[in-house]
Design a binder for these strands. Structure first.
Lengths: 114, 114
DNA sequence: GCGATACTAAAGCACATGCTTAACCAATTG
DNA sequence: CAATTGGTTAAGCATGTGCTTTAGTATCGC
Protein backbone atom coordinates (compact mmCIF):
# COMPACT_ATOMS: atom_id res chain seq x y z
CA UNK A 1 0.00 0.00 0.00
CA UNK A 2 3.09 2.22 0.17
CA UNK A 3 5.12 1.61 -2.92
CA UNK A 4 1.88 0.77 -4.67
CA UNK A 5 1.13 4.46 -4.93
CA UNK A 6 4.23 4.85 -7.05
CA UNK A 7 3.05 1.91 -9.13
CA UNK A 8 -0.25 3.72 -9.70
CA UNK A 9 1.65 6.82 -10.84
CA UNK A 10 3.50 4.68 -13.34
CA UNK A 11 0.44 2.76 -14.51
CA UNK A 12 -1.64 5.87 -15.21
CA UNK A 13 1.27 7.67 -16.78
CA UNK A 14 1.89 4.67 -19.02
CA UNK A 15 -1.74 4.69 -20.11
CA UNK A 16 -1.72 8.44 -20.77
CA UNK A 17 0.10 8.00 -24.07
CA UNK A 18 -1.96 6.96 -27.13
CA UNK A 19 0.90 4.94 -28.61
CA UNK A 20 1.24 2.94 -25.41
CA UNK A 21 -2.52 2.43 -25.20
CA UNK A 22 -2.42 1.14 -28.78
CA UNK A 23 0.30 -1.28 -27.71
CA UNK A 24 -1.79 -2.45 -24.75
CA UNK A 25 -4.83 -2.85 -27.04
CA UNK A 26 -2.75 -5.03 -29.32
CA UNK A 27 -1.38 -7.04 -26.41
CA UNK A 28 -4.86 -7.59 -24.99
CA UNK A 29 -5.53 -9.77 -28.04
CA UNK A 30 -2.47 -11.89 -27.29
CA UNK A 31 1.32 -11.90 -26.84
CA UNK A 32 3.45 -10.32 -29.57
CA UNK A 33 7.10 -9.81 -30.41
CA UNK A 34 8.62 -6.32 -30.23
CA UNK A 35 8.87 -5.93 -33.99
CA UNK A 36 5.28 -7.09 -34.56
CA UNK A 37 4.25 -4.61 -31.88
CA UNK A 38 6.20 -1.90 -33.69
CA UNK A 39 4.99 -2.67 -37.23
CA UNK A 40 1.70 -0.69 -37.18
CA UNK A 41 3.26 2.21 -35.29
CA UNK A 42 4.60 5.22 -37.15
CA UNK A 43 7.94 5.57 -35.38
CA UNK A 44 11.38 4.04 -35.07
CA UNK A 45 11.99 0.75 -33.30
CA UNK A 46 14.03 2.38 -30.51
CA UNK A 47 11.06 4.65 -29.81
CA UNK A 48 8.82 1.61 -29.47
CA UNK A 49 11.39 0.01 -27.17
CA UNK A 50 11.25 3.08 -24.96
CA UNK A 51 7.47 2.89 -24.78
CA UNK A 52 7.79 -0.78 -23.94
CA UNK A 53 10.23 0.06 -21.16
CA UNK A 54 7.65 2.46 -19.70
CA UNK A 55 4.94 -0.20 -19.90
CA UNK A 56 7.21 -2.75 -18.24
CA UNK A 57 8.33 -0.49 -15.42
CA UNK A 58 4.67 0.24 -14.71
CA UNK A 59 4.05 -3.49 -14.46
CA UNK A 60 1.32 -3.36 -17.10
CA UNK A 61 3.37 -5.48 -19.49
CA UNK A 62 5.91 -8.24 -19.04
CA UNK A 63 8.32 -9.61 -21.60
CA UNK A 64 10.96 -12.27 -21.99
CA UNK A 65 13.51 -12.93 -24.60
CA UNK A 66 13.91 -16.28 -26.27
CA UNK A 67 16.69 -16.46 -28.81
CA UNK A 68 16.73 -13.07 -30.46
CA UNK A 69 13.02 -12.36 -30.16
CA UNK A 70 11.42 -10.67 -27.16
CA UNK A 71 7.79 -11.57 -26.60
CA UNK A 72 5.50 -9.21 -24.71
CA UNK A 73 2.45 -10.03 -22.63
CA UNK A 74 -0.12 -8.02 -20.76
CA UNK A 75 -0.23 -8.26 -16.96
CA UNK A 76 -3.91 -8.08 -15.96
CA UNK A 77 -3.10 -7.56 -12.28
CA UNK A 78 -1.47 -4.18 -12.81
CA UNK A 79 -4.32 -3.28 -15.13
CA UNK A 80 -6.91 -4.06 -12.47
CA UNK A 81 -4.99 -2.15 -9.79
CA UNK A 82 -5.49 1.03 -11.82
CA UNK A 83 -9.06 0.08 -12.61
CA UNK A 84 -9.88 -0.44 -8.96
CA UNK A 85 -8.48 2.88 -7.85
CA UNK A 86 -10.87 4.66 -10.23
CA UNK A 87 -13.73 2.34 -9.33
CA UNK A 88 -13.38 3.08 -5.63
CA UNK A 89 -13.53 6.84 -6.18
CA UNK A 90 -16.67 6.47 -8.27
CA UNK A 91 -18.31 4.14 -5.74
CA UNK A 92 -17.42 6.56 -2.95
CA UNK A 93 -19.00 9.43 -4.84
CA UNK A 94 -22.14 7.46 -5.62
CA UNK A 95 -22.56 6.43 -1.98
CA UNK A 96 -22.30 10.07 -1.03
CA UNK A 97 -25.09 10.92 -3.45
CA UNK A 98 -27.18 8.10 -1.95
CA UNK A 99 -26.71 9.46 1.57
CA UNK A 100 -27.50 12.94 0.31
CA UNK A 101 -30.67 11.61 -1.31
CA UNK A 102 -31.74 9.90 1.89
CA UNK A 103 -31.13 13.08 3.84
CA UNK A 104 -33.21 15.14 1.44
CA UNK A 105 -35.93 12.48 1.66
CA UNK A 106 -35.86 12.80 5.45
CA UNK A 107 -36.21 16.57 5.25
CA UNK A 108 -39.16 16.12 2.90
CA UNK A 109 -41.10 13.75 5.21
CA UNK A 110 -40.20 15.89 8.22
CA UNK A 111 -41.72 18.81 6.35
CA UNK A 112 -44.90 16.88 5.61
CA UNK A 113 -45.41 16.21 9.34
CA UNK A 114 -45.69 19.92 10.07
CA UNK B 1 -15.27 8.09 -30.10
CA UNK B 2 -12.82 10.39 -31.90
CA UNK B 3 -12.05 13.26 -29.60
CA UNK B 4 -12.65 10.89 -26.74
CA UNK B 5 -9.22 9.38 -27.32
CA UNK B 6 -7.69 12.72 -26.51
CA UNK B 7 -9.93 12.89 -23.46
CA UNK B 8 -8.52 9.53 -22.37
CA UNK B 9 -4.99 10.88 -22.77
CA UNK B 10 -5.90 13.76 -20.51
CA UNK B 11 -7.79 11.66 -17.98
CA UNK B 12 -4.97 9.16 -17.49
CA UNK B 13 -2.35 11.86 -17.46
CA UNK B 14 -4.34 13.75 -14.82
CA UNK B 15 -4.52 10.61 -12.68
CA UNK B 16 -0.80 9.93 -13.06
CA UNK B 17 0.12 12.59 -10.51
CA UNK B 18 -0.18 11.69 -6.80
CA UNK B 19 -1.17 15.24 -5.84
CA UNK B 20 -4.01 15.19 -8.34
CA UNK B 21 -5.12 11.74 -7.21
CA UNK B 22 -5.18 13.07 -3.64
CA UNK B 23 -7.38 15.91 -4.84
CA UNK B 24 -9.72 13.46 -6.57
CA UNK B 25 -9.81 11.31 -3.42
CA UNK B 26 -10.84 14.36 -1.43
CA UNK B 27 -13.44 15.36 -4.00
CA UNK B 28 -14.91 11.86 -4.05
CA UNK B 29 -16.08 12.54 -0.49
CA UNK B 30 -17.87 15.72 -1.58
CA UNK B 31 -17.45 19.13 -3.21
CA UNK B 32 -14.78 21.48 -1.81
CA UNK B 33 -13.50 25.00 -2.31
CA UNK B 34 -10.06 25.56 -3.87
CA UNK B 35 -8.44 26.66 -0.62
CA UNK B 36 -9.89 23.74 1.31
CA UNK B 37 -8.58 21.49 -1.43
CA UNK B 38 -5.18 23.14 -1.12
CA UNK B 39 -4.95 23.11 2.70
CA UNK B 40 -3.63 19.53 3.18
CA UNK B 41 -1.27 19.80 0.20
CA UNK B 42 2.34 20.80 0.69
CA UNK B 43 2.61 23.38 -2.07
CA UNK B 44 1.62 26.92 -3.05
CA UNK B 45 -1.94 27.83 -4.01
CA UNK B 46 -0.98 28.61 -7.62
CA UNK B 47 0.48 25.10 -7.90
CA UNK B 48 -2.83 23.65 -6.70
CA UNK B 49 -4.69 25.85 -9.22
CA UNK B 50 -2.53 24.41 -11.96
CA UNK B 51 -3.34 20.87 -10.89
CA UNK B 52 -6.99 21.83 -10.79
CA UNK B 53 -6.73 23.19 -14.33
CA UNK B 54 -5.33 19.83 -15.47
CA UNK B 55 -8.16 17.98 -13.73
CA UNK B 56 -10.74 20.28 -15.29
CA UNK B 57 -9.37 20.06 -18.81
CA UNK B 58 -9.45 16.27 -18.47
CA UNK B 59 -13.11 16.50 -17.54
CA UNK B 60 -12.56 14.62 -14.29
CA UNK B 61 -13.47 17.66 -12.22
CA UNK B 62 -15.83 20.56 -12.72
CA UNK B 63 -15.94 23.80 -10.79
CA UNK B 64 -17.91 27.02 -10.57
CA UNK B 65 -17.33 30.27 -8.82
CA UNK B 66 -19.91 31.86 -6.56
CA UNK B 67 -18.87 35.15 -5.03
CA UNK B 68 -15.16 34.82 -4.50
CA UNK B 69 -15.13 31.09 -3.73
CA UNK B 70 -14.72 28.42 -6.40
CA UNK B 71 -16.26 25.07 -5.55
CA UNK B 72 -14.99 21.88 -7.16
CA UNK B 73 -16.87 18.69 -7.88
CA UNK B 74 -15.98 15.33 -9.29
CA UNK B 75 -17.41 14.27 -12.66
CA UNK B 76 -18.09 10.53 -12.45
CA UNK B 77 -18.67 10.19 -16.20
CA UNK B 78 -15.10 11.07 -17.10
CA UNK B 79 -13.94 8.78 -14.33
CA UNK B 80 -15.88 5.85 -15.71
CA UNK B 81 -14.67 6.49 -19.27
CA UNK B 82 -11.12 5.80 -18.08
CA UNK B 83 -12.29 2.88 -15.96
CA UNK B 84 -14.06 1.30 -18.91
CA UNK B 85 -11.09 1.53 -21.22
CA UNK B 86 -9.02 -0.50 -18.76
CA UNK B 87 -11.90 -2.86 -18.07
CA UNK B 88 -12.34 -3.67 -21.75
CA UNK B 89 -8.68 -4.55 -22.17
CA UNK B 90 -8.81 -6.84 -19.15
CA UNK B 91 -12.03 -8.50 -20.35
CA UNK B 92 -10.55 -8.96 -23.81
CA UNK B 93 -7.48 -10.62 -22.33
CA UNK B 94 -9.54 -12.90 -20.11
CA UNK B 95 -11.73 -13.99 -23.02
CA UNK B 96 -8.60 -14.85 -24.91
CA UNK B 97 -7.44 -17.02 -22.04
CA UNK B 98 -10.88 -18.70 -22.02
CA UNK B 99 -10.69 -19.49 -25.71
CA UNK B 100 -7.14 -20.76 -25.23
CA UNK B 101 -8.35 -22.95 -22.36
CA UNK B 102 -11.16 -24.37 -24.47
CA UNK B 103 -8.74 -25.09 -27.29
CA UNK B 104 -6.35 -26.91 -24.96
CA UNK B 105 -9.32 -28.82 -23.55
CA UNK B 106 -10.29 -29.82 -27.09
CA UNK B 107 -6.78 -31.07 -27.80
CA UNK B 108 -6.92 -33.06 -24.59
CA UNK B 109 -10.20 -34.86 -25.40
CA UNK B 110 -9.09 -35.38 -28.99
CA UNK B 111 -6.03 -37.05 -27.57
CA UNK B 112 -8.13 -39.29 -25.33
CA UNK B 113 -10.10 -40.54 -28.33
CA UNK B 114 -6.98 -42.05 -29.84
C1' DG C 1 31.13 -18.33 -42.01
C1' DC C 2 28.10 -14.63 -43.75
C1' DG C 3 24.33 -11.90 -44.52
C1' DA C 4 19.89 -10.80 -42.76
C1' DT C 5 16.98 -10.25 -38.69
C1' DA C 6 15.71 -8.69 -34.09
C1' DC C 7 16.69 -6.12 -30.90
C1' DT C 8 19.78 -2.77 -27.75
C1' DA C 9 22.58 1.22 -26.20
C1' DA C 10 23.77 5.96 -26.27
C1' DA C 11 23.51 10.63 -27.26
C1' DG C 12 21.04 14.64 -28.48
C1' DC C 13 17.16 17.71 -28.94
C1' DA C 14 12.49 20.07 -28.77
C1' DC C 15 8.86 20.52 -25.99
C1' DA C 16 5.92 19.54 -21.81
C1' DT C 17 5.41 19.43 -16.63
C1' DG C 18 5.51 20.81 -11.91
C1' DC C 19 6.76 23.72 -9.27
C1' DT C 20 8.22 28.61 -7.47
C1' DT C 21 7.71 33.79 -6.47
C1' DA C 22 5.77 38.23 -7.14
C1' DA C 23 2.28 40.86 -8.28
C1' DC C 24 -2.76 41.62 -8.77
C1' DC C 25 -8.09 41.67 -8.45
C1' DA C 26 -12.42 41.14 -6.36
C1' DA C 27 -15.69 39.85 -2.72
C1' DT C 28 -16.27 39.97 2.42
C1' DT C 29 -15.85 41.55 7.08
C1' DG C 30 -15.19 44.73 10.87
C1' DC D 1 -13.49 52.38 3.51
C1' DA D 2 -9.58 49.57 5.02
C1' DA D 3 -7.96 45.01 5.93
C1' DT D 4 -8.58 40.31 5.04
C1' DT D 5 -9.74 36.37 2.47
C1' DG D 6 -9.98 33.59 -1.75
C1' DG D 7 -8.51 33.26 -6.01
C1' DT D 8 -5.89 34.52 -10.48
C1' DT D 9 -2.07 35.84 -13.73
C1' DA D 10 2.47 35.82 -15.37
C1' DA D 11 7.18 34.78 -15.54
C1' DG D 12 10.96 31.81 -14.75
C1' DC D 13 13.33 27.56 -13.97
C1' DA D 14 14.73 22.60 -13.22
C1' DT D 15 13.52 18.21 -14.65
C1' DG D 16 11.04 14.82 -17.41
C1' DT D 17 9.18 12.95 -21.87
C1' DG D 18 9.05 11.43 -26.62
C1' DC D 19 11.16 11.18 -30.19
C1' DT D 20 15.42 10.99 -33.46
C1' DT D 21 19.87 9.07 -35.45
C1' DT D 22 23.84 6.38 -35.23
C1' DA D 23 26.18 2.53 -33.93
C1' DG D 24 26.31 -1.47 -31.96
C1' DT D 25 25.45 -7.00 -30.43
C1' DA D 26 23.52 -11.24 -30.48
C1' DT D 27 20.86 -15.01 -32.98
C1' DC D 28 19.03 -17.47 -37.22
C1' DG D 29 18.96 -19.58 -41.88
C1' DC D 30 21.60 -20.98 -45.61
Amino acid sequence: MLNQLTQLDKAFQALADPTRRAMVERLARGPVSVSDLARPLDMSLPAVMQHLAVLESSGLVQSRKVGRVRTCQINPEALSAAEQWINQRRIEWEHRLDRLGQYLETLKTEGEKK
